Amino acid sequence: CHSECLGNCSQPDDPTKCVACRNFYLDGRCVETCPPPYYHFQDWRCVNFSFCQDLHHKCKNSRRQGCHQYVIHNNKCIPECPSGYTMNSSNLLCTPCLGPCPKVCHLLEGEKTIDSVTSAQELRGCTVINGSLIINIRGGNNLAAELEANLGLIEEISGYLKIRRSYALVSLSFFRKLRLIRGETLEIGNYSFYALDNQNLRQLWDWSKHNLTITQGKLFFHYNPKLCLSEIHKMEEVSGTKGRQERNDIALKTNGDQASCENELLKFSYIRTSFDKILLRWEPYWPPDFRDLLGFMLFYKEAPYQNVTEFDGQDACGSNSWTVVDIDPPLRSNDPKSQNHPGWLMRGLKPWTQYAIFVKTLVTFSDERRTYGAKSDIIYVQTDATNPSVPLDPISVSNSSSQIILKWKPPSDPNGNITHYLVFWERQAEDSELFELDYCLKGLKLPSRTWSPPFESEDSQKHNQSEYEDSAGECCSCPKTDSQILKELEESSFRKTFEDYLHNVVFVPRKT
Rank of each mutant, 00 (worst) to 15 (best):
K103D: 05
V104H: 12
H106L: 07
H106Q: 12
G110C: 07
I114H: 01
I114P: 01
I114V: 11
D115P: 03
D115W: 01
T118K: 11
T118R: 08
A120I: 06
L123E: 01
G125M: 12
T127L: 07
T127W: 15
V128C: 08
V128S: 13
I129W: 04
S132K: 02
S132P: 02
N136S: 06
N136L: 10
R138I: 15
G139E: 13
G140Y: 08
N141L: 10
N141P: 11
N141I: 08
N142T: 12
A144L: 11
A145I: 05
E148P: 09
A149E: 09
N150G: 04
L151Y: 01
G152M: 05
E156L: 06
G159D: 01
G159T: 01
K162W: 12
I163Y: 01
S166M: 14
A168M: 02
L169M: 07
S173V: 07
F175S: 00
F175Q: 00
R176W: 03
R179D: 03
L180S: 10
I181S: 00
L186Q: 06
L186W: 09
L186H: 15
N190H: 10
Y191T: 10
F193Q: 00
F193M: 12
A195V: 10
L196S: 08
L196D: 03
N198A: 03
N198G: 02
N198V: 03
N198K: 00
L201W: 05
W207C: 03
W207A: 05
K209C: 14
H210M: 05
N211Y: 09
N211H: 11
L212R: 00
T213V: 14
I214N: 02
I214D: 01
Q216E: 01
G217P: 01
K218S: 01
L219I: 13
F220Y: 03
F221Y: 11
K226D: 13
L227P: 00
C228T: 03
I232F: 01
I232C: 08
M235R: 00
E236A: 11
E237K: 13
G240Q: 15
G240W: 15
R244A: 04
R244S: 05
D249R: 05
A251Q: 11
A251K: 09
L252N: 12
K253C: 09
T254V: 04
N255K: 04
N255L: 06
C261S: 03
E262T: 11
E262P: 06
L265K: 13
K267P: 05
S269F: 00
S269K: 07
I271R: 01
K277R: 02
W286S: 07
P287W: 02
P287D: 05
P288W: 10
D289I: 02
F290Y: 10
F290V: 01
R291K: 08
R291P: 06
D292S: 07
L293H: 06
L293C: 08
L294W: 10
G295F: 15
F296C: 03
F296V: 04
F299I: 08
Y300L: 09
Y300N: 08
Y300V: 07
Y300M: 14
K301D: 08
K301P: 00
E302C: 08
Y305C: 08
N307R: 01
F311Y: 15
D312Q: 03
D312L: 05
A316T: 15
A316S: 09
S319L: 12
S321Y: 02
T323V: 14
T323D: 05
V324L: 11
P330M: 05
N334C: 05
S338G: 09
Q339W: 06
G343A: 11
G343I: 15
L345F: 08
M346D: 00
R347E: 12
L349I: 06
L349F: 01
K350G: 03
P351R: 05
W352G: 01
W352N: 05
Q354N: 09
Y355R: 00
Y355E: 00
I357E: 00
I357Q: 00
I357C: 15
F358Q: 08
K360H: 01
T361L: 03
L362Y: 13
V363G: 15
V363E: 02
E368V: 15
E368F: 14
R369M: 08
R370S: 06
R370Q: 06
G373E: 08
D377L: 01
D377V: 10
Y380H: 01
A385R: 12
T386W: 05
N387G: 08
P388Y: 02
L392T: 05
I395K: 11
S398Q: 13
N399G: 08
N399S: 11
S400L: 06
S401R: 10
K407V: 13
P410H: 10
